[in-house]
Write a protein that binds this DNA or RNA. Structure first.
Length: 752
DNA sequence: CGGCTGGGCCAC
DNA sequence: AAACGTGGCCCAGCCG
């Protein structure tokens, strides 16, 4: 009876999907390449020294040499004042030399072609006029030039502004080594009312960086209306470079910049911007805001055209930029003593392991896969189970073959922990005693956050323990429970998958009971069926091959195939959703999340058509409906057909897996980002701080007086971030040390 | 020496 | 032939 019912549901669902598909196709948007996919920007000359730097490098050496000679010959004395005089005089001479030698260079061309409406602000009078003109503007473009990229150590060298109504672009040098300029504080004082005024809209490229920089100089910028870097990531998540000048070179012709725009690296390499002569600085820096403004106008058109993306940008990504800034400013406190002590323990344990390893394998570098493979496979003749690989999986398989392997595995584990985390984290401590990793909201194709310098999203539990709450504070970690399966249940509309969530049952137990047709008692926590189901559901969402699934579950490939088949028969709408997604991406070359974030697959349609037609031919030859598991080994299929099929197989199947995954993972990312906006608002109002995210988890620093009721409100911020057909669930841990969390129930029980 | 790549491995 | 999605960091080894 149930089988028949499911069958009927599937048919109904299929008809709905067919209708949706027809509708989608009828009104489908032109795909990316049809509209404006004009090829890749070439980040050329990336590892070259920069036009400016190459001219300076020789002179720099010369300067050092001359200073040395002058000191040795007694021409100047060793005191600071004389040295300063000498180098300043030399800097001026250097500048003149530079002016002579770059006559035919790109820099000279840039300077010669400086547009009339690029202006310096070098005097009090000019600054006063600028402030007056700014009063008439409603939205402006802003950019800062700095001594480097470290927002906690480097300094602002100059500020660029674009005034769209007055139609001019300014560069305000404030800390160049040579040239007429105003004092930085004078300039900031004059601009602060405008910068901190939220009703004056600001447009920037990578605003997070400039906001941090201004914070460093005591100014909190408000009124961010558009970030061309973030918006570009929504408009093309596949863009190979988001450097402003690379975007200008690639898309500039759409908004009036026909020439090649050179990036900072290309022009200046590692030269500090305060050494760049003012005439070059003007044309480079003013062009920054000029380009940003033009890019903004052009992006606006496209965001309007793609309505959903405009909303996603305005409601989610743009406000999230400030959240990100606050998160990074907060940072994490490291327990230095713990790190020191733990480091010592690890080093001593590693030294002992090295001794044992030397006894077993002789004096080689155990971090070198090349030396290790030579030792294991050439000298010791261990069986090559996995093509001379030396990864953990292979080593575990070889464990019985050689007594040294277990030491090697332990060595791997400990050196990874020591070098990547325990030693690396304390080195990141900034002047304020904390580590400020950065969180990037637009670094992934699916919309997830990424983190770097250091990556705070991949700390193992043992390394998380280095991070502690500041005195009088507590760390709170709230994570969405099973958000991806819940989203699969919502998006696929599969009533059977939704059921356990609606009835408050355990998902994996229920699933296992149905798919394996076992009584629920046999599928409880810790049962093998529940464990298998957990892996199996992930496999369905990620599109795992039968081969991989079979090794993961330690079953045969046929059993894995049977398992997935049973799963799809039990949850037919999940199957329909996946098939529908594959069809959709084949026609449209993109998929989108619940909130309209897109993942595009340029060029997929053609390959998918080839794939489908070849697959059909193969099926016809074999007289079957479904592609067999191993086409390659089947000798009934002509070699040429097989070859052509395998030419596109990898790309097409990969894009299909990515498309399904992008919808689930991307929607989860959207929900988390919405939750973060809620949490940031809530925490800020209480004087607390949202300080990080690990994909489905939010981290906060709160007062140690936090109550059970506060925690409920925090969870509500997250749960209400999306309204789905299944409820969202949040689990919260409270901790003094990350990685030593206590569930909220236990925490408040023991507190009372 | 700095930059790059591939192998390996940490997280969700 | 390839085998599961999204990231970033460390190390060895190579190159200019």
């Amino acid at each position: 009876m149930t089988g028949l019912k499911i069958q009927q549901n599937e048919d109904v669902h299929q008809r709905v999907l067919d209708a949706q598909m027809k509708k989608a196709l009828a009104q489908r948007e032109p795909t990316w390449d049809e509209v404006w996919f004009t090829g890749w920007a070439k980040p050329s000359g990336k590892n070259q020294p920069g036009i400016f730097q190459s001219k300076l490098s020789g002179l720099d050496k010369e300067r050092l040499h001359k200073v040395k000679l002058a000191i040795e010959s007694g021409e100047i004395s060793r005191d600071v004042e004389s040295l300063k005089k000498f180098t300043k005089a030399h800097a001026l001479r250097l500048y003149k030399v530079l002016q002579d030698t770059r006559k035919h260079s790109i820099l000279q061309k840039m300077v010669d072609e400086t547009p009339d409406n690029y202006r310096f602000i070098q005097t009090e009078v000019q600054l006063e006029q600028l402030v007056q003109d700014l009063a008439d503007e409603t939205v402006i473009a802003v950019d800062t030039e700095t001594t480097g990229l470290d927002v906690y150590n480097d300094m602002i060298v100059g500020i660029s502004l674009t005034l769209p109504k007055a139609d001019y672009h300014v560069y305000i040098p404030v800390a160049h080594k040579v040239g007429k300029q105003l004092n930085r504080q004078v300039v900031l004082n004059a601009l602060t009312p405008m910068l901190s005024n939220p009703t004056v809209g600001k447009v920037l490229h990578n605003a997070k960086y400039d906001i941090h920089m201004l914070i460093r100089h005591g100014v909190r910028m408000r009124g961010l209306v558009h970030d061309t870097r973030v918006a570009m990531a929504l408009l093309n998540e596949n863009e190979p470079s988001y450097a402003l000048k690379n975007l200008a070179t690639k898309y500039g012709s759409k908004f009036g910049f026909e020439d090649t725009s050179h990036t900072f690296d290309e022009l200046f390499g590692k030269t500090c911007f305060d050494e760049v002569p003012l005439d070059v600085a003007l044309v480079y820096a003013a062009k920054d805001t000029h380009l940003t403004w033009k890019l903004y106008e052009w992006q606006q058109q496209h965001l309007q055209r793609l309505g959903k993306l405009e909303r996603l940008y305005r409601e989610l990504e743009n406000p999230l930029i400030e959240v990100c800034v606050d998160m990074e400013q907060c940072g994490f406190l490291i327990d230095k003593n713990y790190a020191q002590q733990y480091g010592e323990e690890l080093r001593s344990e590693i030294r002992q392991l090295e001794q044992s390893l030397t006894d077993h394998f002789g004096d080689i570098n155990y971090n070198s896969t090349i030396q290790l493979a030579r030792k294991l496979y050439d000298e010791l003749k261990l069986p090559e189970v996995n093509a001379r690989s030396t990864d953990v999986k292979t080593l575990k398989a070889l464990k019985d073959k050689h007594p040294g392997i277990e030491y090697l595995l332990k060595y791997r584990e400990l050196t990874k922990l020591l070098s990547t985390y325990v030693e690396a984290l304390p080195e990141r401590i900034k002047p304020d005693g904390r580590i400020h990793g950065s969180f990037n909201q637009v670094a992934t194709v699916t919309g997830r956050f990424s983190s770097n310098e250091p990556n705070l999203q991949n700390l193992p539990i043992k390394a998380r323990k280095l991070i502690i709450a500041p005195p009088g504070k507590l760390l709170i970690g709230s994570d969405f429970s099973q958000i991806e399966p819940r989203l699969l249940a919502h998006i696929s509309g599969d009533k059977h998958l939704q059921e356990p969530y609606l009835n408050g049952q355990d998902l994996y137990s229920t699933l296992a009971s149905k798919v394996f047709k076992k009584p629920i008692e046999e599928c409880g926590d810790g049962s093998k069926y529940r464990k298998m189901m957990k892996v199996g559901l992930l496999a369905v969402m990620y599109g795992t091959s039968m081969h991989t699934l079979s090794t993961q579950l330690e079953i045969t490939v046929d059993e894995a195939h049977q398992f997935i088949g049973d799963f799809f028969r039990t949850y037919p709408q999940v199957h329909s959703f996946i098939k529908y997604t594959h069809e959709f991406v084949k026609e449209n070359e993109y998929v989108e999340t619940l909130y309209g974030r897109k993942r595009r697959f340029p060029g997929h349609r053609q390959k998918a058509k080839v794939y489908d037609s070849l697959a059909k031919q193969i099926c016809e030859i074999l007289g079957v409906d479904e592609l067999p598991l191993n086409v390659w080994r089947n000798n009934d299929i002509p070699r040429d057909l097989k070859r052509r099929f395998y030419d596109v197989k990898g790309d097409v199947e990969s894009a299909r897996r990515q498309s399904v995954n992008a919808i689930i993972q991307g929607t989860a990312a959207d929900v988390m980002k919405r939750a973060m906006l809620n949490l940031h608002k809530y925490c800020t109002a209480r004087g607390w701080t949202l300080c990080g995210t690990v994909h489905d988890e939010a981290l906060m620093i709160v007062d140690d007086t936090v109550t059970e009721c506060d925690v409920k409100e925090i969870e509500a911020c997250m749960i209400t971030a999306a309204s789905l057909t299944v409820p969202l669930k949040v689990d919260t841990e409270i901790m003094q040390r990350w990685g030593e969390g206590v569930k909220k129930g236990e925490w408040f029980a023991s507190a009372a």
